[in-house]
Simulated assay, not measured.
Amino acid sequence: MSNLATKKLSGLLLKQLGPHHLSSTSAFHTSISNATAENSKPMITGLFRTFILELRNHSTLSSDELMKPVQTSSHSAQGKSEDQKDQKAISSYWGIAPKKLTKEDGSAWRWNCFMPWDCYKADISIDVKKHHKPSNFMDKFAYWTVQTLKYPTYLFFQRRHVSHVLLLETVAAVPGMVGGMLLHCKSLRRFEHSGGWIKALLEEAENERMHLLTFIEVARPKLYERALIFAVQGMFFNAYFLTYIASPKLAHRIVGYLEEEAVNGYTEFLKDLENGTIENIPAPAIAIDYWCLSPDSTLRDVVTVVRADEAHHRDLNHYASDIQCQGLELKEAPAPLGYH
């Protein structure tokens, strides 16, 4: 190819690319200006190779980034170290970054399992002795089912209240999640609202889980207790799932009686704390923040607010069962949201 033809081809290619694509690449211009007739074939090959490289760079980098001068290795290393210092602990391509939360006193919020707006002061004035008297076959079936299930656990744990609580809370957090999940699916299938009951039941499940996270700070279950928890939770989840599908009002009544027994269990826990059988240690930090307790609170204070929570769950589930026993659906009565 003659020298004139080479220059014409190069000029046409430059016009097509324009200054935007080639303004940042000096090598491309140099290859054109230094072209000669003797190395025309290698020059054209290099020309197209550079062209492809430019297009690929523009598909991933902005023009401003391409305009930046090339730094030496020492400057690159220095720049990388500065970027690492400025980089957050957790970075995300999606731009999601955790907010820096603080408590009312200005100190940093230390929990990821719950946020400051999840905290509340428990209503300990609730009647912890209230009992729903069985009035029909369904109520009696639910009551005696719970009574039958409670005796093996009482015989196993006896006065080891913390270990008993760990088992109780891993089971108590199941009904709210199962009920909320099934109501959620029902709402999707029927294209209807739930009256707030999905959120109410999920709130219950989350509250029970926080009970567990609190008592984990007091004692850790032994290996055989973990095995028991694993087995009991697995059986209870599936049994409650099937029960709720068959009869939601029976499922809620069973939970109501389970919560009554939980209230009784925490009452016995408090008696042993008060008479010195169990040491009244300082309250875990997670409990102080979750229930907005005073910094000098003790385990007795924690058990008191947890018992109040269980009493509220008792009332909520008996109320849910009563609604359905009257021939109504849960969505027809507003759910007591925030009723811990």
Rank of each mutant, 00 (worst) to 15 (best):
E225W: 04
V232T: 15
I281E: 09
L316W: 05
D315K: 12
V263I: 10
G256I: 11
E259H: 04
P284T: 12
N264R: 11
E310A: 02
D272E: 14
G276V: 04
T267V: 02
R300V: 00
R253P: 00
Q326W: 08
S297Q: 12
T243W: 01
E274T: 11
D315M: 12
V263L: 01
Y244P: 05
W291H: 10
H313E: 06
A219C: 03
L223E: 06
I323V: 15
R314C: 05
Q233G: 10
H252N: 14
A219T: 03
A287Y: 09
S294F: 02
F241E: 14
N207L: 11
W291Y: 15
P284N: 11
G256T: 10
C325L: 13
E203R: 04
Y244A: 14
V218K: 03
R226H: 06
I286L: 14
H318V: 11
I198T: 13
E261L: 09
A287I: 08
Y319T: 15
E310G: 01
F215G: 03
A262S: 13
R314F: 00
M210V: 12
K249N: 12
E310Y: 02
V232I: 12
L223D: 03
P284Q: 11
D296V: 07
L270G: 01
K199E: 14
E274W: 01
T267I: 02
M235N: 05
I245S: 06
A311D: 06
P295C: 09
C325S: 14
F269K: 01
E225Y: 03
R220L: 10
I245H: 06
A219Y: 01
M235R: 09
R253N: 09
Y257I: 07
G276N: 04
Y319S: 15
H211I: 09
F241I: 09
V305D: 09
V255S: 07
A239I: 13
E203N: 13
I229N: 07
M235D: 03
V232G: 00
K249L: 09
Y240Q: 08
A231D: 05
A320N: 05
A285K: 15
I216D: 04
I198E: 13
E261T: 05
Y319Q: 15
L223Q: 06
